[in-house]
Design a protein around this nucleic acid. Structure first.
Lengths: 252, 252
DNA sequence: ACCTGAACACCGTTCAAGT
DNA sequence: ACCTGAACACCGTTCAAGT
């Protein structure tokens, strides 16, 4: 486990794999791309923890050690997986830059990234590192910056807006994904869960007074039926961001 | 690894541990709190991956198996660690609700949480699950909601504002933390790193045209000397949020 | 009654041995 | 030249054995 995190990996080698994924080096017919696609299937179904070289190799009917010459190691494989799905965030739908109103372009970036994380839940579990740009991430970055270009923001403001926007989306997607996982694992709705917890919690918290928290989470539960509402938070955050950018641009 | 994620853990037991951490069950003198504090020291220095029961037990001069009766298991220990540091986000500084301008209260929440994540970098690596409220998280939630109370937002808007705000901070802190880790591990500055990568990358990307991305990351590099700037993105996002909330409130 | 050693079923990765 | 089995140094957790 500790060992996993320690190996550094060679960025130059990774770039080669990212940009030339169909070059085969062996006689088994394997390519980085074939391995990556198989791994994405496994991760979509079983989560990032299921991505072990033994498990992916099994999927491809080879031994785990066969994979090493093609993908260098586990961290590199995950980078390859991430870049592959990142490149598909806008496939099958129109590009954000196509919308005439910049507000709609911002909203489109938000929903496309949200759907992307829910389609590939493991993406919220991947630790970011020093970004080594692959074709997928590069193309997405260009697509999204274009949607923010020409509306009156400076280059730096465009970069900061996009970076923070994507951090908000992925942070809230992470909460949603893990909540869904918890719901599945316990096969309990939020209400059932709460009913099991609350008597114990009431005893534990006896004497403590958190009036604001009680009022607000009471309202949340009554309005949404949920104990936490990251998706609602994202809708709200998107509109606040749009209003804030508009105010910023108007003041010029 | 897969096994780690699979064990569910008993929430009722966890609540007991969270709220009565100094109850000792054995003759070794250990308590959940002592174990938790030792684990936090290890994690602050060596990261979340270093939190193995063997490693924590070594710190306390007992065997790994001794810990089980006190902390139930690794996932529960991490929850205990997280709640403990969460309770200290505002210790040693004034509470956000003390500021007279709500804008300053929002900014205070942002900086306190940012510093918290940088002080305990492992916090950005903990997977959120179904939240089991401990004393630390409950107190912080009350503190932060109070800072947003009475400025004209509905209960639901307060909740959504806080949730999205914290997701943005932790998402950007996560990027910063992992960037710092990568910089330490490679002992390379962003510039050195870039000089090693860019010739290989230029060859790989030959023929591809990403004019907006090139222009914007060029500006970012020239202005900040960095290849990525999550901290700047947070400053920008905070001001946009404040402006957006102000616009929302004015329209009423 | 509490503590712990050995054991189980996993990991990523290396390296020598097979084909 | 490519593929792979055994081995190494780890995990979390269980359970029977020790004190």
């Amino acid at each position: 486990m500790a060992k996993r995190a320690e190996r550094k990996g060679d960025p130059v080698k990774l770039i080669g794999l990212l940009w030339r994924p169909t070059v085969s080096t062996g006689r088994s017919g394997l390519t980085p791309k074939l391995i990556t696609d198989a791994a994405i299937r496994v991760a979509d179904d079983e989560g990032l923890d299921a991505i072990t070289l033994r498990r992916v190799a099994e999927e491809l009917h080879v031994s785990a050690m066969t994979l090493y010459p093609y993908i260098a190691g586990r961290p590199e494989l995950i980078e390859l997986m991430l870049d592959a799905v990142t490149g598909e965030v806008y496939t099958g739908q129109d590009l954000p830059a196509g919308r005439s109103d910049w507000r709609d372009r911002v909203r489109h970036i938000v929903t496309a990234n949200w759907q992307h994380h829910l389609r590939h839940p493991w993406t919220v579990d991947v630790r970011p590192g020093r970004p080594v740009p692959g074709p997928g991430a590069s193309g997405k970055y260009e697509t999204e910056l274009r949607a923010l270009d020409g509306i009156g923001l400076s280059d730096l403001e465009m970069e900061h807006t996009l970076t923070s926007l994507l951090a908000t989306v992925s942070g809230l997607a992470r909460e949603t994904v893990e909540l869904n996982r918890a719901r599945e694992q316990s096969s309990q709705s939020d209400l059932q869960w709460w009913n099991e917890i609350s008597p114990v919690l009431a005893t534990a918290m006896a004497g403590l007074d958190h009036p604001t928290a009680e009022r607000v989470s009471g309202t949340l539960g009554e309005t949404t039926g949920l104990s936490a509402d990251p998706e609602g938070a994202l809708r709200h955050a998107t509109e606040v961001l749009v209003a804030g950018l508009a105010a910023l641009l108007e003041g010029r």
